[in-house]
Design a protein around this nucleic acid. Structure first.
Lengths: 153, 153
DNA sequence: CGTAAATAGTACAATTTTAGTCCTGTTTCC
DNA sequence: GGAAACAGGACTAAAATTGTACTATTTACG
């Protein structure tokens, strides 16, 4: 399905909530109740985002978290990279020399090209865009199709 | 890291090998030795691709597999969909009503938009492109960056 | 015909990854 | 000094992924 991890998903839900009032300092508990996620999970996500400087943290009583930049300057690509590491569709597009078939496989350069294209697509959506209303659309048939193997529960 | 599964990776390696001589019928064993992958793994991949009509199979002695269309007409997006099901970065972008926070989360339409953009990027690379020589490049810094959590072994 | 070569389909065990939680330490406000 | 809040790491449980094996079916060819 080519999906991001749930933790990454939560990271975007949480930061989208913070984008509602970018100046305000939110505690982790507050954000948990606002997003209907579990407090420990929200805390974990915020700690990771802090290490990548996407959110600022304030310790001590009446501390909390705030976006480090304006929502328009934070992209979905940046959030995914912060949570999951570099965007690469295959191992070889990120790390050289780990794949046993690397010597006989000429695809590495192509995978890097593909990863870059995906990164660019993800860079065009900012947190500000995510907070704007959107139309939930029917997906095009190519996106809906999947085969019997993945269909069965 | 936003990666495809290994099986999907293998699917592309195997079909890229078949694209070398699109008319020829290859046995699974042959393709395994050519790609340096395990025979059972190659067989599994080919069965899945057959169900999605990306390759044609021929049963019986001197049977085997062949690409169902020309390499220029098979895209990486099609191969990923065949192996993993629909491309969607989150559960909610593929299936409605399964996410517990769907009622309070307004991100679904945006995720569909992102998934579509990624699908388009993956549709622009065909199997024919994959067989052409490529330059292995240094990745841009944004793609290389990852944080301490994912860095440590 | 019978046998060998080859795919089809399904089921399963082992491994790896992910998710979620908890605990202890540190900082800061009042 | 105490309470509120974040930091960091460790750990357990669950889920997904991988890789393999087994049985059945189909077809070429002597």
């Amino acid at each position: 399905m080519l999906r991001i991890s749930k933790l990454t998903d939560y990271a975007i839900v949480v930061t989208a909530a913070m984008a509602g009032d970018p100046e305000r300092i939110y505690s982790a508990a507050e954000l948990a109740s606002e997003t209907h996620l579990e407090p420990p999970t929200v805390a974990k996500v915020l700690k990771t985002l802090t290490r990548s400087d996407l959110v600022q943290s304030f310790r001590g009583a009446s501390g909390g978290y705030r976006l480090a930049r304006s929502p328009a300057e934070i992209t979905v690509a940046q959030l995914i990279v912060a949570m999951e590491g570099p965007i690469g569709m295959t191992q070889c597009s990120v790390h050289q020399g780990l794949c046993s078939t690397e010597a006989v496989c000429a695809l590495r350069g192509h995978w890097q090209q593909i990863s870059r294209a995906v990164y660019n697509a993800l860079s065009e959506m900012t947190l500000l865009d995510m907070t704007r209303p959107s139309i939930t659309q029917q997906l095009v048939p190519e996106l809906k199709f999947h085969n019997a193997t993945t269909e069965s529960p």
